[in-house]
Design a protein around this nucleic acid. Structure first.
Length: 772
RNA sequence: UGGGGCGUCGUCUAACGGCAGGACGCGGGACUUUGGAUCCUUGCGGUGUAGGUUCGAAUCCUACCGCCCCAGCCA
């Protein structure tokens, strides 16, 4: 029931472009978990993305264990990961890899880097390395070992591999850029010594590659085309590229980053999840309260619901926080179709049906499925003289709108007769122990009208069962962002699991085996625990509650509407500390350092340019050069300035202007034609795009592409008529008051003319034509 | 603070100079032997701020504001 067609996202756009340009002819992605913990819902997003891309583009997705750190990685995790990915419904076929498969090749490439003088063995201690690295403001200092000879480095590296040095004695480092503002590039570590046994390679290695070195190589060896990771690796992309550019690899993958998943009331950091397990705050990695795939599986989530959730939330680069309600929605949507309905009473009150013959039992054929699911099937449901109902379905003094039982009121027993509460029996503490109710069977004319239906179980045939009510793990929405200073563990929800041992279920449920989904009517979706369910003794895990408009109303009524006063985004309160150095200040500095630029600035102001344009044009030599050169060909300073500032800079996208095919004469010619009305602004931009791309002259491009502006009233009139005829709906909506549609219709007309029609005139003609 | 990213309904996400759309949520309605199933909904609600360019700006230019990431021998 996966919904609709696949949503567009920025990664799909990149792939589309790569396929179209021929950069790639197929798509190969990978999901590269480190086997140092169990997979969680955040990984599910990545799995669905990577495998989904491969599926949709007819490519392949590799499963790769990123096992470069033997100290934290274990075989148990490797198996769990494989199990979870395949349970989610994805197949990697033959394409199972391990980073450790490539250790020898990685080593050889490292030797190559040393030979090329691009890597060295460093003996600085970790503390010293950190110290030498500098800060974001100050550059790094070179390690005293940075310049030793290739031969010495080769010898040392060989001995590192041979196990001659203890852990931490030395590392292999790349010769990066010590002054780089990107800290990751300041001589990144490539190899460290770890005399630990590796789950796959055992003791054959005692040096292990670092992520930043290993990952790009793994991608290249596997011929990955699109290497997709999360946002926090953006800074690592520079080393990713460095490694691939400095080693002879068989392919050239590229890294793209997307926003990782965040959801409320849980944590998704492996460190914290591990701590929850180790310190026994939960019963293990597969505890149903855990956000792990294993935990969700045991709780009763389905792969379909999780996949659907991942489709629903999309993929983008903005940090986001997904409402857990979306997951619950996906769960209910899926579970509705696969969960037969039954009844169970969690907190029973006995009800005596007054007048019911002592040993009379009627069998009810109760449907397993509601009408909308439309599946056949019933289960036998016996009704005798005593039943149990839910304690919360009775109120001595019902609040307004209460549709359940209260003294003198009547309800229908689900699938059964109507009952009216005539007598309430209590114990000495005042607790209700029994209700005596009149029964109205069949179409009894005297039956009271009822508004509510409640669930029940027959007292004589009820079966005791254990019910585990799972709730959100934490009691605050963002335990990771808690600023109260409390330890995050104190934020655990004390009621994240409530075990109900006195629950009573209808007899048909007694035979349920492990791993079955049911809906306990009016209570929620449940799953028989796959580990603890015994023959005849089901254990029910609550997967998710049902939507509950009454509970919602009740809560709202109870809490006196806390009129949420949100601190209005403090309007430009200049309390804000100095922003980062802006481009203006950068340009001002450039002018201060270079008198020629400063002189230009004054001259441009004298030419009549705005201060802003003059500023932008004089921040760098090349921008001003282009402006001046174009100006010498065509003398309208403001027009040239406008095109340089607003259009050329946009087209350049921060690249130096010298990388553009555009020359000053081309630009000047273009601006001249626009000013003269030979071509429209729109066409002008089209011409500029080609000039930037391929160079040439504006006149030639205009003639070749036939972009000369059409100003002829008759031709434009015909065009307008045609557009009006072609879009009757839009015209009607425009006339009904949707003014925004004038833009749409103008656009349609201009587009139909191939960008040649004079847009002002088109718009005016349209407006006039539609006014009548 | 140097650098790298990101700001669109309450939340998530589209729109690539031309109708701000979808989903969850919220509200309203239908139906009802699940208040909680299910269905309908032309209902609510948004382009961080301020300028500029353009016939037309969420989109291009400029400035400002805010948030995230980077100084592990983790990944």
């Amino acid at each position: 029931m996966s919904t609709a067609e696949t949503k567009s996202n920025f990664i799909r756009q990149i792939i589309d472009a790569d396929l179209e340009s021929g950069r790639h002819t197929r798509v190969v992605t990978r999901f590269p978990p480190e086997p140092n913990g169990y997979l969680h819902i955040g990984h599910a997003k990545s799995i669905c993305l990577n495998f989904g891309l491969a599926r949709d583009y007819g490519g392949t997705c590799h499963l790769r264990m990123d096992d470069t750190n033997p100290e934290t990685e274990e075989e148990e995790y490797i198996e769990a990961i494989k199990n979870d990915v395949s349970w989610l419904g994805f197949e990697w076929g033959e394409k199972l890899f391990h980073a450790s498969d490539f250790f020898e090749q990685m080593y050889q490439l490292a030797v190559g880097l040393i030979r090329d003088g691009k890597a060295y063995v460093d003996h600085l201690t970790p503390e010293e390395i950190s110290e030498y690295r500098g800060t974001v403001r100050e550059p790094a200092r070179p390690s005293p070992y940075r310049d030793r000879s290739v031969d010495e480095n080769l010898d040392l590296f060989t001995r590192m591999r041979a196990g001659e040095f203890p852990d931490g004695h030395c590392v292999l480092r790349a010769k990066g850029d010590l002054a780089s503002p990107n800290m990751k590039l300041r001589d990144p570590l490539l190899y460290r010594i770890r005399k630990a046994s590796h789950p796959r390679t055992g003791d054959t290695w005692c040096i292990y590659p670092m992520y930043d070195y290993a990952h790009p190589l793994e991608d290249a060896f596997e011929h990955i085309t699109h290497s997709i990771c999360t946002l926090e690796f953006e800074n690592n992309r520079d080393i990713y590229d460095w490694v691939l550019d400095n080693t002879p690899v068989p392919a050239r993958p590229h890294q793209y980053e997307f926003a990782r998943l965040n959801v409320g009331y849980t944590v998704l950091s492996k460190r914290k999840l591990l701590q929850l397990v180790n310190e026994k705050h939960v019963a293990g990695w597969d505890d149903p309260r855990m956000p792990t795939i294993a935990g969700m599986r045991r709780r009763g989530f389905t792969p379909e619901a999780i996949r659907n959730f991942c489709d629903l939330i999309g993929v983008a680069k903005a940090n986001s926080f997904v409402d857990i309600g979306k997951l619950e929605f996906c769960l209910r949507e899926d579970l509705n179709l696969r969960s037969p309905r039954y009844m169970a009473v969690l907190d029973p009150i006995e009800v005596e049906l007054v007048g019911w013959a002592a040993d009379r039992v009627t069998m009810i054929d109760a449907p397993l499925w509601p009408e909308d699911v439309g599946r056949p099937g019933t289960r036998p449901l016996p009704l005798g003289g005593r039943v149990f109902i839910e304690r919360e379905d009775f109120e001595q003094t019902p609040p307004k709108g209460f549709k359940r039982l209260s003294p003198g009121a009547a309800v229908r027993l689900r699938y059964g007769p109507v009952i009216r509460c005539d007598e309430v029996l209590r114990d000495e503490t005042g607790r209700v122990v029994k209700l005596r109710c009149a029964v109205f069977e069949g179409d009894a004319a005297e039956a009271p009208r009822v508004e509510g239906t409640i669930h029940w179980v027959p007292a004589h045939a009820a079966v005791p069962a254990e019910v585990r009510l799972y709730d959100r793990l934490f009691s605050v929405e963002k335990p990771d962002a808690d600023t109260s200073g409390r330890d995050w563990l104190t934020l655990l929800n004390p009621e994240n699991l409530v075990v109900v041992r006195g629950a009573l279920v209808e007899p048909a449920l007694a035979a349920l085996g492990p791993g079955q989904h049911v809906q306990l009517e009016r209570t929620g979706y449940f799953y028989t625990d796959p580990k603890d369910t015994r023959p005849g003794a089901p254990v029910f895990n609550r997967v998710v509650t049902l939507r509950d408009s009454w509970a919602k109303r009740a809560t709202v009524a109870a809490s006196p509407a806390p009129s949420v006063v949100r601190p209005a985004a403090t309007a430009a309160a200049d309390t804000g500390k100095a922003a980062r150095k802006s481009r203006t200040t950068l340009r001002a500095e450039a002018r201060a350092a270079e008198p020629a630029l400063a002189a230009r600035y004054d001259r441009y102001l004298a030419l009549g340019l705005s201060a802003e344009d003059a500023d932008v044009l004089t921040g760098a030599q090349d921008v001003g050069d282009l402006f001046e050169a174009a100006l010498s060909v065509y003398g309208n300073a403001t027009s040239i300035a406008r095109w340089v500032v607003n259009e050329v800079l946009g087209a350049a996208k921060d690249a130096p202007l010298s990388t553009l095919a555009l020359d000053a004469a081309g630009l000047a010619g273009l601006v001249r034609m626009v000013d003269a009305g030979d071509i429209s602004n729109l066409a002008g931009k089209e011409v500029l795009a080609e000039l930037v791309e391929k160079g040439g002259t504006a006149v030639e491009i205009v003639e070749r592409r036939g972009l000369r502006q059409v100003n002829d009233a008759a031709a434009l009139g015909a065009l307008v008529e045609a557009v009006i005829a072609a879009h009757p709906d839009h015209v009607a909506r425009y006339k009904a008051g949707n003014a925004g549609l004038l833009g749409f219709l103008t656009g349609a007309a201009v587009r139909q003319s191939g960008g040649k029609a004079n847009p002002q005139q088109v718009r005016a003609l349209l407006e006039a034509a539609l006014a009548g």
